[in-house]
Simulated scan of single mutants.
Amino acid sequence: MQSKATITAIGIHVPEEVIGNDYFETIVDTSDEWIVQRTGIRERRFAGKQEFTSDLAITAVTNMIQQYDIKVDDVDMILVATSTPDHVFPSVASRIQSHFEIKHTGAIDLHATCAGFVYGLNMANALVTAGMNRKVLVIGAETLSKTTDFSDRTTCILFGDGAGAALVEYTEENPGFLASYIGATKGEGGIHLYRTHLSDQLDGQPVKDHGQIVQNGREVYRWAVTTVPTGMHSLMDQTELSLDDVDWFIPHSANARMIETICEKSGFPLEKTLMSMERYGNTSAATIPLALAGGIREGKVQSGDTLLLYGFGGGLVHAGLLLKWLPTKTPR
């Protein structure tokens, strides 16, 4: 079925507090040089003690409203991708509905970790194209600093907080969604990246039951650099386009070295790849909108450009999306 949806606007927000790599030199055995060399991260943002995922998400939506001079009071579905909701329930999506006083809308939180924003966009496209909704608000937002194990030198250096919001609307004239590819090619790999909630075991194996992120970075790296290039080509196979026709590749900004390997294996030029980890760290569901907004702000991404978005993370799940960037207005 041909898409009847397009992304018309985007907004972002990050907390004020900047945390440089030198901070971690005071709490674990590491250095700025080591962090930059291994991850490409130079700084990240941490939310305040009383600042939560819904706060970042609300400000990102507000930024979108101001940048594109639009309204959201007629949104009829809110999808929030997050692994760090303020509460188990009420959902972050319902907090968005309440804040903006949106009278008639659905409100759902999605849990697809670092692939969440792309999952959300794909779901929004499906809902609009099927005729169930006409205007869907998709948000990727995280406060990972609140779930980070700061005694683990291999993971505490990675994560930051941030949010991005996109508006997906009905259109027949200029659909922006070209192809999608979604999978969970290594569900049994869940033990390599998890955060406990109710259970103290996973597939019969005991897990660290402290409510903080646990990651086997080496195994996740191996999975990602194999899975993502394959997914990129599978995505392009659905169209008459090739990777040469893609203007910008926007992957989940987990680690700069990982993205370099993905580009090398897929044959996509690194210089046409947008990332957000250098300034913001790994913000999970928010890395892709942060990178896209940065590309727009810097004048790289132009209306009509073909974008390839690819998210991947805990589960282990992944999701790709090929789209045309066709905003209805130029951001202020």
Rank of each mutant, 00 (worst) to 15 (best):
300 K>D: 09
185 T>V: 03
246 V>A: 13
63 N>A: 09
9 A>D: 09
134 R>D: 12
238 Q>F: 01
154 T>R: 13
204 G>Y: 14
238 Q>G: 03
114 C>A: 13
292 L>M: 12
286 A>L: 07
237 D>S: 15
73 D>W: 04
294 G>H: 14
239 T>W: 06
291 A>L: 09
120 G>M: 11
214 V>W: 10
5 A>K: 00
130 A>T: 03
63 N>Q: 11
325 W>T: 10
320 G>K: 05
26 T>A: 10
22 D>Y: 11
86 D>G: 08
226 T>D: 13
322 L>H: 05
232 M>E: 01
17 E>Y: 02
51 E>V: 11
145 S>H: 06
327 P>K: 11
30 T>F: 11
119 Y>D: 01
53 T>F: 00
127 L>F: 06
206 P>Y: 13
264 E>W: 08
274 L>A: 05
35 I>W: 12
320 G>F: 07
171 T>H: 02
230 T>V: 10
190 G>M: 10
182 I>F: 12
115 A>D: 06
106 G>K: 04
103 K>L: 14
304 G>Q: 03
297 R>E: 15
153 R>W: 13
199 S>W: 08
269 P>D: 13
85 P>E: 02
264 E>K: 15
261 T>D: 15
79 L>M: 04
211 G>V: 00
139 I>Y: 01
132 M>D: 12
226 T>H: 12
288 I>F: 10
87 H>W: 06
240 E>Q: 10
112 A>K: 04
4 K>C: 03
91 S>N: 00
309 L>H: 09
197 H>K: 07
6 T>D: 04
144 L>H: 01
324 K>V: 01
221 Y>F: 15
324 K>F: 04
134 R>N: 14
264 E>N: 14
215 Q>S: 15
62 T>Y: 08
242 S>I: 08
319 A>I: 07
192 H>N: 14
185 T>Q: 05
261 T>C: 10
125 N>P: 05
247 D>Q: 14
17 E>Q: 14
141 A>W: 03
122 N>D: 06
298 E>A: 15
32 D>C: 10
161 D>L: 10
118 V>F: 02
33 E>Y: 11
180 S>F: 15
144 L>D: 01
46 F>P: 00
57 A>G: 04
140 G>K: 00
11 G>P: 09
149 D>A: 09
58 I>M: 12
67 Q>H: 11
92 V>E: 03
251 P>V: 15
134 R>P: 00
324 K>Y: 01
90 P>C: 05
200 D>C: 13
